[in-house]
Design a protein around this nucleic acid. Structure first.
Ligand SMILES: [Zn+2]
Ligand SMILES: [Zn+2]
Length: 815
DNA sequence: AGCACGCCGACT
DNA sequence: GTCGGCGTGCTC
C-alpha cells in the first residue's frame, strides 16, 4: 500500500451533536485534494447536504453499510492537526461530542448547510382542478419566487404546508432541489497607487485654487499616508482619511493620476506599530520574573492591582513574539474588548493585530480565521474573546489571558460547556506555547496552583505615580433606615458623596448587579407575583420599553394594568434594577448628566461607544450600570463609586459566590481614584460584618484567599476536589425526579467519588423544562479522565433504559 | 440536531 | 375514513 495512491475513505465530523464521525468514500479524482482538516461537502440523511471536516483517512471499507461519496472539496480550514487534537480533547474533557465542539469552533460562514428549494414545474393552466386552495397557494408562491425553500413555507404556513408540498412533489407538479450558498473566503483588497510621472496633473490638483477640493483632499491624504510609512494604501484608508467620496476617487482614476489594483488581502504587508514604552523598575523586575517562569516551562500568574501597568508588560512580551515571527493570542473578557483597548494595541502593533469576538460579522470572523490559518502577518497577534482559542493557529508561541478570574471565560450553555482559560492552557501545551495569566484578583484555582508550585507567581503591587488605593466605606442599610437616612435605595452618606463629587466636577459610578427596572411585580391584594409562564422565575419590569421580560428564556409581554388573578390594580414593584436606580438618581440630582450601561443599553453599538467616549471626556457625571461598568474601562475622572446593595452578590447560592463578590467589588472599586484624588467607595449592605466586605475594605487579597481556601477545604469544594455537575432536564417533573434519584444511587457505584443530590437549581424550570442537578466530587489524586469515562458509561447505561430515554442530560465539568 | 416514519385521537 | 399530533430511531 503506497501513500501515493491515496486513501479510499475519509472519516468526517459534522456540526451536529453526534457521538461519532461518519465514513465517506473518496472519489479518486478528489483524492489528491483531501487531507486531514479539509472541508468537504457530503450528503447526510435523505437529502441534506452539509460541509464536514475530514478528521481521519483510511482504507478500511465498512462492512455493514455502503458509504456515500464525498461530493466536493471546499478546501482546507485547518492546516495543523493540533487544532483538531484540541477539539478532540475538549469533547472528552468537557464530556460532550466533537461535533458540538466543531459547531462553536467554526465561524458560521464555514458551516454550509443545504436548504430544500421548491420549484413549480407546471403552468397554471394545467394545474389539476381538484387541487385545494392551499395547494394552489403553494404552487403560486413557488412559481412567483423560484427560490422558495421548504423552511420558508413552514415559517409562513406551519408544518402542514410541508406535508402538502411533499404530496405535490409526489404527484410531479413541484420540483425539489437542495441548494447551498457558497462563500468565497479569499478577501480582495483595492490598493491605490499614484502615477508620480503625471506631475502636471498632480500639481494642478494640489493648486490652492483648484475647483476639485474633494480630489485634492484625496491626493493630500495619499501623501500623508505615504509619509507615515504605509506600504500599501488601500481605498478604504484613503477614503477614511480624506473624507472624500468614491466619486472623487473615481475621477482621479479616470484622469490616470491614481490607479486601483486588486490584491489578495493575504499579500498585504502589515506595518508594525511603535516601540514599546520603557518599563518602570517594578515592571522590569516583574518582566524578568515572567521570563524566568517561562524558562522553567511554567505558567506565569501576574497578580497586579489595577493601574499597576499589566498591559505594558503584555505589550513587551508580545513585541518579543512579533520579532520572532510567532503567533500570539491575547484573551480578554468579551465586554472588556473596548475600542480603548484595541486602539492601545494598534498603537503598538499597527496592522498586525486582529480582533476576534462574537459581535463581529460573520464575514469578519471568517476573514480572521483564514488569515490565522495562512499565518499572515496581519494576524500575528489575535486579541479575542473566549472563542478565539479555536482559531487555526500553527505557530502559537504565547497566550496571554487577561482578567484570568473572569467568569465570562466559561461557556455555560450550550455544549460544549467549557472553561476558556483552562482550555487555552491545554492549547498552549499542544503548541509548546507559554501562558501568562493576568489579574488584580486571581481566581482561587489559579492562586492555589501558584502555592502548589505549578504556576509561577509574579506580583506587581505598585500603582502608577504612587496612585493610592481607594478608601472603602461600608454603609449599614439597617442603621441608616433607623436614623431615617435612606432615600429610596440611597443612603444619605452616599448621596452626599455624589453631591460633593458633582460640585467638584468629578465623576461617579453606581453599581447595581441587576438590569431592568424591578425584578418583581407583586399584587398588594392577593400577593400574586407575575411569573414567566415557561420558567420558574418572576418577570422583570422594563419600564422604559414598558414590558415584562424573562431573563432566562427571553419571553416578554406588556405590563398588565391589573392583577391577572384577582383583578386588583394595586400592583407594586419589589426590588430595584439599574433602570430604577437611574430614575432615582435623576430625581435626586436633577441637573446631573446620568447614563446607564447594561446589557439593554449596550445593545446598540453606537450608543455604547458614545457612552464610553462621553464618560472619558467628562460629558457624563454619573454612570449607572451592571458588571459592565467594572470591566476594561479606564476612566480617569471617577472619584466616587457606589454599590447600591452588596447583599445579592454575597448570598447567591453557589460556592463561587464569595469569590465572585470579592472580585466584582474590588474591580468596581478600582474604577475610582485615578484622578489624583484618592477614590472613595461606598458599599451599602445589611451585613457590614461579612468577611468578604472586610477583605474588600482592606484590599487584602491574601487574607481573602486564606479564608476562602479554608472554607473550600472544609466543605470539599474545588480546587481541593474536582467537581462535575450533572444536569437532567424533562418536561415531566415526576419522571425527572424519579430519574434523578435513581441515577444518583447508580452513580454511587463509581468508586471513591462523592455523589451529592439530586437537588433543584435556583431556577428549577426554564422554557418548560424542569431541571435537577447532581454534584459529583472526585478526589484530586484519582484519575480525572478514567473517572469521567466511568461516569459516562453509567449515564449511557442509565439513559438507554426505556423509562428514562426521553430525559435529557448534560455535564458541567469543573463546575 | 434534523428528519422521516409510524402509531393513535378528533373531525369531514 | 383522513389529517395532524408527537414519540422513536437513524443518519456513513
Ligand atoms: Zn391579585
Ligand atoms: Zn422564561
Amino acid at each position: 500500500m503506497s501513500h501515493l495512491v491515496g486513501f479510499r475513505f475519509a472519516e468526517v465530523l459534522l456540526p451536529r451533536p453526534l457521538a461519532n464521525g461518519f465514513t465517506y468514500e473518496i472519489p479518486t479524482e478528489l483524492s489528491p485534494h483531501i487531507r486531514i482538516g479539509t472541508r468537504v461537502l457530503v450528503q447526510f440523511g435523505p437529502r441534506k447536504i452539509y460541509s464536514a471536516i475530514v478528521i481521519r483517512l483510511h482504507n478500511n471499507a465498512p462492512d455493514n453499510y455502503e458509504p456515500k461519496q464525498i461530493l466536493e472539496v471546499l478546501g482546507p480550514v485547518i492546516d495543523d492537526v493540533r487544532n483538531l487534537q484540541f477539539w478532540q480533547w475538549m469533547a472528552e474533557y468537557y464530556m460532550c461530542t466533537p461535533g458540538e465542539v466543531m459547531n462553536v469552533a467554526l465561524p458560521s460562514r464555514l458551516k454550509l448547510e443545504s436548504e430544500t428549494q421548491l420549484q413549480c414545474l407546471i403552468e397554471e393552466e394545467y394545474w389539476d382542478e381538484n387541487l385545494e386552495a392551499e395547494d394552489r397557494e403553494i404552487l403560486t408562491i413557488t412559481r412567483n419566487s423560484p427560490e422558495t425553500t421548504l423552511n420558508d413555507l413552514v415559517k409562513q404556513y406551519g408544518t402542514a404546508a410541508a406535508k402538502r408540498a411533499k404530496k405535490l412533489v409526489d404527484i410531479g407538479v413541484l420540483g425539489i432541489k437542495e441548494s447551498i450558498k457558497y462563500h468565497s473566503l479569499e478577501k480582495w483588497i483595492k490598493v491605490v497607487h499614484i502615477n508620480a510621472h503625471k506631475k502636471k496633473e498632480i500639481e494642478a490638483i494640489l493648486h490652492p485654487k483648484t475647483k476639485a477640493k474633494a480630489q485634492q483632499n484625496i491626493v493630500l491624504a495619499y501623501y500623508q499616508l505615504q509619509a507615515e510609512g504605509h506600504l500599501f494604501i488601500t481605498r478604504e484608508m484613503l477614503l477614511n482619511r480624506s473624507t472624500s467620496t468614491i466619486a472623487a476617487l473615481d475621477a482621479l482614476v479616470r484622469k490616470n493620476i491614481l490607479e486601483i489594483r486588486e490584491i489578495k488581502e493575504s499579500a498585504l504587508f502589515s506595518r508594525s506599530g511603535v516601540q514599546a514604552a520603557k518599563l518602570t523598575e517594578a515592571q522590569q523586575e516583574a518582566y524578568e520574573k515572567i521570563l524566568k517562569t517561562f524558562a522553567e516551562n511554567k505558567i506565569a500568574l501576574l497578580h497586579g492591582i489595577t493601574s499597576s501597568g499589566k498591559t505594558e508588560l503584555y505589550v513587551h512580551l508580545m513585541k518579543e513574539i512579533e520579532k520572532s515571527g510567532g503567533q500570539c493570542l491575547m484573551l480578554v473578557p468579551e465586554i472588556a474588548l473596548t475600542t480603548q483597548l484595541i486602539n492601545r494595541l494598534r498603537h503598538f502593533f499597527g496592522e498586525r493585530v486582529s480582533l476576534y469576538h462574537s459581535r463581529m460579522t460573520d464575514r469578519e470572523r471568517s476573514d480572521v480565521w483564514e488569515s490565522v490559518r495562512k499565518n499572515d502577518p496581519g494576524s500575528q497577534l489575535v486579541v479575542g474573546a473566549r472563542s478565539a482559542i479555536f482559531l487555526p493557529f500553527s505557530n502559537l508561541k504565547l497566550i496571554i489571558i487577561d482578567e484570568e478570574h473572569d467568569s465570562s471565560y466559561r461557556q455555560d450553555a450550550p455544549n460544549p460547556r467549557y472553561q476558556g482559560r483552562d482550555s487555552a492552557i491545554y492549547l498552549a501545551t499542544l503548541f509548546g506555547a507559554h501562558v501568562l495569566l493576568g489579574t488584580a484578583t486571581p481566581s482561587v484555582e489559579s492562586y492555589f496552583n501558584t502555592l502548589q508550585g505549578k504556576y509561577g507567581l509574579i506580583e506587581l503591587h505598585q500603582r502608577y505615580e504612587g496612585l493610592q488605593l481607594p478608601e472603602v466605606h461600608l454603609i449599614n442599610i439597617r442603621e441608616e433606615k433607623k436614623k431615617n437616612r435612606m432615600k429610596g435605595n440611597f443612603s444619605q452618606t452616599l448621596i452626599e458623596a455624589i453631591d460633593d463629587a458633582l460640585r467638584r466636577k468629578k465623576q461617579t459610578i453606581i453599581f447595581q448587579n441587576r438590569r431592568g427596572y424591578s425584578p418583581k411585580l407583586i399584587c398588594e391584594d392577593c400577593g400574586t407575583v407575575q411569573m414567566c409562564d415557561r420558567c420558574d422565575i418572576s418577570l422583570t419590569i422594563h419600564k422604559a420599553v414598558h414590558r415584562l421580560k424573562c431573563h432566562y428564556c427571553g419571553r416578554e409581554k406588556s405590563i398588565p394594568p391589573a392583577c391577572v388573578v384577582c383583578g386588583s390594580i394595586h400592583l407594586k414593584m419589589l426590588g430595584a434594577g439599574t433602570e430604577q436606580i437611574e430614575d432615582e438618581l435623576s430625581s435626586l440630582f436633577p441637573g446631573a448628566r446620568i447614563e446607564r450601561l447594561d446589557l439593554d443599553t449596550a445593545q446598540s453599538k453606537k450608543r455604547y461607544n458614545k457612552m464610553l467616549t462621553d464618560m472619558e471626556s467628562g460629558q457624563i457625571d454619573i454612570l449607572v450600570g451592571t458588571q459592565m461598568v467594572t470591566k476594561g474601562l479606564n476612566f480617569t475622572k471617577v472619584e466616587v463609586v457606589g454599590v447600591v446593595n452588596a447583599d445579592n452578590l454575597l448570598y447567591f447560592p453557589e460556592y463561587r459566590a464569595h469569590e465572585r463578590a470579592f472580585q466584582l467589588l474590588e474591580q468596581v472599586a478600582g474604577r475610582s481614584g485615578r484622578s489624583g484624588q484618592v477614590g472613595k467607595v461606598f458599599i451599602q449592605t445589611y451585613n457590614t460584618g461579612h468577611p468578604v466586605l472586610t477583605f474588600v475594605k482592606t484590599h487584602d487579597y491574601k487574607a481573602f484567599y486564606e479564608w476562602q481556601s479554608q472554607e473550600r477545604k472544609t466543605f470539599l469544594y474545588p480546587p481541593f476536589v474536582r467537581m462535575i455537575h450533572l444536569m437532567l432536564r424533562h418536561k415531566d417533573l415526576k419522571l425527572l425526579q424519579k430519574a434523578s434519584i435513581e441515577l444518583t444511587s447508580m452513580l454511587k457505584s463509581v468508586s471513591e467519588i462523592l455523589v451529592i443530590g439530586p437537588e433543584f437549581p435556583p431556577v428549577n424550570r426554564v422554557n418548560n423544562y424542569y431541571r435537577m442537578g447532581i454534584f459529583l466530587k472526585i478526589p484530586r489524586n484519582k484519575s480525572y479522565l478514567k473517572t469521567k469515562r466511568q461516569i459516562w458509561s453509567v449515564c449511557l447505561d442509565f439513559f438507554t433504559h426505556p423509562e428514562y430515554k426521553t430525559v435529557k442530560f448534560f455535564f458541567e465539568v469543573d463546575a
